[in-house]
């Protein structure tokens, strides 16, 4: 809370997320999953809604990093307790 923006308003972690609304984000999730999509909404639990989302599942028994399974969803709600981090991508 020690950082402030130009207007002197305190800056919080969720301010970063707010700037990503209607932008592409990469969300890292529990269970070796990642979800890329356009951020349409979020709340303080990291619940969020992504549009045109692509999910990558790195769920291969032996070679974890080889080709992930890809799943697409036009509109998806992601429950916050699975979220590890939110990464702005451009």
């Amino acid at each position: 809370m020690s950082n402030t923006d130009v207007d002197g308003n305190p800056q919080e972690p969720f301010d970063l997320v707010r700037y990503q609304l209607d932008e592409l984000v990469l969300v890292k999730l529990r269970g070796a999953r990642e979800m890329k999509g356009r951020l349409q909404g979020y709340d303080s639990h990291c619940n969020m809604v992504l549009s045109d989302a692509v999910e990558y599942i790195y769920d291969l028994g032996e070679e974890v990093n080889s080709n992930p399974t890809v799943k697409k969803s036009e509109m998806v709600f992601v429950r916050g307790d699975s979220v590890i981090l939110i990464n702005p991508i451009n």
């Binding site: 609304l21 036009e74 509109m75 429950r79 699975s82």
Partner: peptide
Amino acid sequence: STVRYVHMDPRSVDCTLLQDASRRGK
């Protein structure tokens, strides 16, 4: 608490409204 995702029809979501609501918070 056991839910991971909920997929829905994009036509039933008002995106502008949802973004606006997220900006304004609670």
